[in-house]
Nucleic acid binder design. Structure first.
Lengths: 175, 175
DNA sequence: ATCATTGCAAATGTTTTGCATTCGA
DNA sequence: TCGAATGCAAAACATTTGCAATGAT
C-alpha cells in the first residue's frame, strides 16, 4: 500500500450543515447555515462521547467550505457570522475536541502552527499553497520504506512522521 | 543526490565557545563557558551583518551541547547559567536572528512549534525521540521524485517541504 | 565612535480557566 | 432530567516593543 496515486481537494465530501442554530439565544447571525447533519458525523461525535453542537458543526462547516487552513481567529470570525455570540474560548475548546475526533488537524507553517484544516481521510499528506493557503492532499506516502531502513540504521523505532509540501498552486503561479 | 545514506547526531562538529562573557556587567554565571569562537561562525554572522555577541553564542552553544530541541524557556534557563542577566526578550530576538542565519531551526511538534534545535547542515531531516527529545538527522531525502511527480499531477509548483520523523531512540525503548 | 544589540519594563497578544447558564441526548 | 458545552470575564501565560545603556566592530 505504497503507491495509490491520488490527490484530492480536501473536504470534497458532501456534508453541509444548514439549520436553525440556536444555542444560548444566538440570533442575528446567518442562522440558516447549519442543517441536515449527516449521520456519519453524528456517529463520530457519538463515538467520542461528545455532543454534536451547532458551534462544533459550524467550525467544521467553516473549515470545509474554505478548503484551506484557517487560523483560530479566522475560524472565530467565520463562526460568528452564523452564531454571533460565540466566544473565542469556545473556538479553542471546539478545535481541540474536533482534533480529538480526528475531524480536523493542526497545520504547521513556517511561522507557527496555530492553523487548522479539515482532516484528510486515511493516511494523506497536504500540499499547501503559499499564495492562497489552499490545501490539497495526496495519498502516496513515500516514507514507509525509508522509515523501515532508518529504524534499522539508527536504532530508533520510528512511529510516526510529519510531512507537508509547500508550493504554489496553478492560479497563484502567475499573479 | 538522492541516496547518500548517512545519519548524524546533530551538532557533532567541534565548536564550543568557552570564554569571558561580559556584556552588560553579567557576572556570577558560569562565565567561562564561551570561548574561542570558530572563524566559520564569525563569518556566518558577518555574512548576515549581525554581530557576534555572547548571548548569541551562548544560545548556539546551549543548543549544540544539548543535542535536542529546547523550548524558548529551556534555552533561556540555559543561557542564564552563563549570562545571568539575559532577558527573555533577548532569547526571542536571538533565536529569530539565528534562524535567519540558518544556524537554528524551529522544531514542529504535536503540541506546538516553539522549540528550537541546531540547524542540520545541508538538506537533512530530523528524527525526534519522543522519549528524550534527542534529535538525529538523516540526509536521504525521499521526496525529490515524488515532488516532481506531484507537481505534474496537481499543477502545484512544489518549492519546499517539511518532513520530520518521530519515534523512540534505543535508550528510550525500554524505560 | 558608531550603531546594532541588550536589559528592563510595559504593552500587547494568545490561551486557559472558573462558573453560572443553557441545551443536546 | 442531567451532565456536557457554552458565553462571559478574569487569570495566566507568551510574545513584542520602546528606550536608555552598553559593547562589538
Amino acid at each position: 500500500m505504497n503507491s495509490k496515486r491520488n490527490s484530492t481537494i480536501r473536504g470534497s465530501s458532501d456534508f453541509k450543515y444548514i439549520s436553525k442554530a440556536s444555542r444560548h439565544r444566538q440570533e442575528g447571525g446567518d442562522a440558516n447555515a447549519i442543517s441536515h447533519v449527516p449521520k456519519e458525523i453524528r456517529a463520530i461525535f457519538r463515538g467520542g462521547r461528545l455532543k454534536c453542537t451547532p458551534q462544533r458543526l459550524a467550525v467544521l462547516g467553516i473549515l470545509q467550505k474554505s478548503m484551506k487552513h484557517l487560523s483560530i481567529n479566522e475560524v472565530h470570525r467565520g463562526v460568528k457570522k452564523i452564531l454571533p455570540r460565540t466566544g473565542l474560548a469556545t473556538i479553542y475548546r471546539t478545535l481541540e475536541a474536533l482534533e480529538e475526533l480526528c475531524l480536523v488537524v493542526r497545520v504547521h507553517l513556517e511561522d507557527g502552527c496555530q492553523s487548522y484544516a479539515l482532516a484528510p481521510s486515511g493516511h494523506q499528506h497536504p500540499i499547501v499553497c503559499m499564495g492562497c493557503n489552499r490545501v490539497v492532499d495526496f495519498e502516496e506516502c513515500p516514507l514507509e520504506d525509508i522509515s523501515r531502513r532508518l529504524s534499522r540504521e539508527t536504532g530508533f523505532k520510528i512511529q510516526q512522521h510529519f510531512l507537508q509540501l509547500f508550493g504554489k498552486c496553478r492560479e497563484c503561479q502567475v499573479p
